[in-house]
């Protein structure tokens, strides 16, 4: 329990009797990066708004470091940082003035810390420019900067890579991983870029129509163990001959490609079986299934957006 930074407990949100979120429960331990995936309108942002105290909770409760956001709001918010619904900033302030503005709302954030954060997000050269002249990517960086100023134990990031270029996305990914590892910051992140989530998250939760469909562990071990999800593609010419040999295997045929879902350890045996029967192998490809493919499996083949 001490290790749990964010606990979402049977949370329901209803607006005018319509249930936007139904009985959501999530626990995020110290240092974990948790991804929230789901189609637009599934309720990801609503859930994040409730965690950050912007929306009221219809039933259930949310605890940040064991402090309830409904009853101990101030103490819960003290240790939370967020970007929600886009990185909006004061347009007439410079980047630095924006950071000072938010820094003044916490006890004891030093000038040194502000400079440090500017360095981290890579805005050193444009920090004195007015935000109305910022690009979306620069605003996103400033958004990250204001969210980490006070070294929060929990970061709630709603689509934080929106508007960033690929290099920026990688930088942000590396930085988030670093603070999760070094500072033990827990991060709840939502995105519709599945490939992104796969690269950064330890665990993901899939939300659809306001309900938690499933939670999945994305650690390397988990993926390898779960053999049925990995794809082995073998290119041959003698399809008919192969068919006779491979009775014991489940596979699909796509022109001259045989597609198997098997363990990596079984691959040598399969190749051996084919070669001893004189089936000529032109190419063998082993692919771990991507999060995207698995997402479709988990959600029953629906599209994401």
């Amino acid at each position: 329990m001490e290790n749990t930074i964010l606990e979402i407990k049977n949370v329901t949100k209803a607006i005018k009797r319509k249930k936007i979120l139904k009985n959501i429960s999530i626990k995020i331990p110290k240092g974990e990066i948790y991804g929230l995936i789901g189609p637009n309108g599934a309720g990801k942002t609503t859930l994040m708004r409730m965690i950050t105290g912007l929306s009221s909770i219809t039933s259930g409760d949310i605890f940040i470091k064991e402090k309830s956001i409904s009853t101990e709001r101030k103490r819960a918010l003290l240790t939370l940082g967020t970007i929600i619904e886009g990185p909006d900033m004061y347009p007439f302030f410079s980047g630095k003035e924006n950071l000072f503005h938010f820094a003044r709302m916490y006890p004891n954030i030093s000038k040194k810390r502000i400079e440090e954060v500017i360095e981290i997000v890579g805005l050193t050269n444009s920090i004195n420019k007015k935000v109305k002249n910022y690009s979306l990517g620069m605003k996103q960086r400033l958004g990250i900067a204001q969210s980490i100023l006070h070294n929060p134990s929990l970061l709630i990031l709603d689509e934080p890579t929106n508007g960033l270029d690929p290099a920026g996305i990688k930088e942000m990914r590396d930085y988030l991983k670093k603070i999760a590892l070094q500072n033990n910051t827990s991060i709840l992140i939502s995105s519709h870029l599945l490939s992104e989530m796969e690269l950064i998250c330890d665990r993901i939760g899939i939300i659809k129509h306001g309900e938690m469909v499933s939670e999945h562990n994305l650690s390397e071990m988990e993926l390898i163990k779960d053999s049925s999800k990995n794809k082995v593609t073998i290119e041959i010419q003698q399809i008919d001959e192969a068919k006779q040999i491979l009775n014991e295997y489940n596979y699909t045929i796509d022109n001259n490609l045989l597609i198997f879902h098997i363990n990596k350890e079984e691959v040598p045996n399969l190749i051996h079986l084919l070669t001893v029967n004189n089936v000529k192998i032109y190419e063998v490809a082993y692919t771990k299934s991507t999060l995207e493919e698995r997402f479709f499996e988990w959600t029953g083949g629906n599209t994401i957006d």
Binding site: T82, D88, Y90
Partner: peptide
């Protein structure tokens, strides 16, 4: 400006 969100998630 959309900054109301950022203002309201502070410990006050």
């Amino acid at each position: 400006w959309g900054t109301i969100k950022l203002l309201m998630v502070r410990p006050y």
